[in-house]
Design a binder for these strands. Structure first.
Lengths: 345, 345
DNA sequence: GTGAAAGCGCTAACAT
DNA sequence: ATGTTAGCGCTTTCAC
């Protein structure tokens, strides 16, 4: 294979331990000795074998991040933040995607590359509390995302209900009354959109309006094409909302595409609000009003939680920090005086 | 730590080797023995320690992928394809981003997590041939992207000159003559945009037109904001192109944003062509005509090349396969009869 | 078909 | 301040 500590020790005429001391920046090494060893290291081009170090230390310095899809810029942007946050703790990130498959989520949570990763950050879609409770893998797990779990794991998520209520309140304040929700799911109660849908219901009720369930649109997935299809379906069954609150920006962008194709003006005919503040939403022809979760904070809190668990510093009980968010108002909800000018870049 | 082979052997009353044979599906094990060992494995919840296996075998089954930015959907989409392609060879992918920093590119190429990754797929921006030649790390490296290198490494890239010529030819065929190029770089000859710019020059020259260098716009980076700023700068210095060919889709989308803000109609006043075919380009209000590189093929060829090098099957000389691409014509270059309808989803 | 033992490269006790 | 040694968990000869 390669050059080992032993080779360097031989070359420098010292013991393995001394070389190890130099490599690991151990305190008590005389400068002369350090220089001698360093020369041997350079001459031989020695590189420490991290695999051996990992085996010995029982940890690898690698954490895994599993998200549904990189194709969703929200997760791509988040992944970038996680990589950066992990680097600050000298951790490397192994990224995987679950393709929104329950099977894959289970697999990953159950020990993705056992003993190779020290811990896991997972953003599940389909996983249930029971799945989490049945988990046997001992590596720490930190959860991300909109689902709620009664499992003993740290979970990082913004206050989705409050954020959604703020989005709906914004629309109500502009005079909209028939506000559709795009991106619900049939079936299970604990669907990802659950909390955002609840926010929609609560804020409408708080305004004295009866939430009109015929304005709730179920979509197959959470991509642009799902938003486009969902919007088309809503219009096709004769509904004419005056605003749309979408589960995420991609769905909102797909919906805007359908609206534009069918000749609706945004926001004059129908206002649109998204969720995620992906960069794309700042560049759509009608820029998109959206809820902007603090992705940097989410990534940082997730990595910090995981690192604390790994170092055994954390308390036993699961933690549920609430990173911030803000409503970013853009053209898709701004009645324009004349021509459109962007207000947020 | 956890349960080791030894524990299982003890429990089953057999030797370590026998357990190892069962774990590794070795041929010559009697069914009875296999069942007995398997029971012990299940009872103890044994999970093989991959780190130890890696140390012993000298390889880890992990490859790294380093791209400039996940924020660019092209790289995010590509990363997803690489993860899938690697999985088909039972490799796991460790993803990193270089943030477009030469320093980081050097670091990564010089041995990202030495001995932890078996090989590396790198999409460089700033790296020079000299940097590559000075590389001491022995792990195989496969290059991606638009730069050309005279270094002995496999390099996967579509024919950028031909693809760019096709894009420009498309614009010429529509009657455009003053075609701007957005996304060049000052300084070095081997900039990423070099080949696409060459395609622009060659095709204009082939059509008997003198490439107008005042229509070549230098941008700071390759994001939406750079496209927006570049387009603004071009217009501000009084140029009125009738078409824009952008280095990539993000720049094109930024340019379209500026054009829309300033009241230009696309494609009537100015047609726009991008490069990459990110999903977003199918959903912009004026959908974007673009060159669509075969990302699946790029990822597959990169992983296959790397895996072949890792297994020692590959020939010595570097290989430069040419994955395919196609021109996807959308609204941004389609003079519409009346209202706009999408032609490609 | 199964067992015993060596060793991958490193770190951590312990010794000097 | 530096050297010696055991052992992390696994695979791999080589016996039997």
């Amino acid at each position: 294979m390669g050059v080992s500590l032993k080779d360097v020790a031989q070359r420098a005429g010292v013991s393995i331990k001394t070389v190890s001391n130099v490599v690991n920046n151990y305190q008590h090494v005389t400068p002369a000795m350090r220089a001698k060893v360093q020369r041997a290291i350079d001459e031989l081009g020695y590189r420490p074998n991290l695999t051996a170090r990992h085996l010995r230390k029982g940890r690898t310095g690698i954490i895994a991040l599993a998200v549904p899809e990189f194709g969703n810029p929200y997760f791509a942007e988040l992944a970038g933040e996680v990589v950066d946050a992990a680097a600050r703790h000298d951790y490397t990130v192994l990224v995987d995607h679950t393709a929104g498959l329950r099977e894959k989520e289970l697999l990953v949570s159950q020990g993705f590359r056992s003993h190779v990763i020290d811990g896991l950050i997972l953003s599940p879609i389909h996983l249930e509390t029971e799945d989490l409770m049945a988990r046997t893998e001992t590596a720490p797990l930190v959860l991300l995302g909109e689902r709620e779990y009664e499992a003993p794991y740290d979970h990082i998520a913004i206050d989705n209900v409050a954020a959604s209520r703020e989005a709906v309140r914004h629309l109500l304040g502009l005079g909209h009354r028939r506000i559709a929700f795009l991106g619900s799911r049939t079936g299970r109660e604990r669907q990802p959109a659950h909390l955002r849908l609840r926010g929609w219901r609560e804020e409408l009720a708080a305004a004295g309006l009866e939430p009109d369930e015929s304005l709730v649109v179920v979509t197959d997935g959470y991509g642009r094409e799902d938003g486009a299809a969902g919007m088309a379906a809503l219009l096709d069954r004769g509904e004419r909302p005056d605003a749309v609150f979408a589960y995420n920006d991609l769905i909102a962008i797909g919906a805007m595409r359908t609206l534009t194709e069918r000749g609706f003006r945004i926001p004059e005919d129908i206002a649109v609000v998204g969720f995620d503040d992906i960069e794309e939403s700042r560049y759509t022809t009608t820029t998109l009003t959206t809820i902007a979760p603090d992705k940097e904070a989410i990534a940082r809190l997730a990595v910090d939680s995981l690192v604390e668990r790994l170092s055994g510093e954390a308390t036993a009980e699961p933690r549920r920090p609430r990173p911030g968010y803000r409503l970013v108002v853009r053209e898709s909800t701004t009645p324009r005086p004349e021509s459109g000018h962007t207000e947020d870049h």
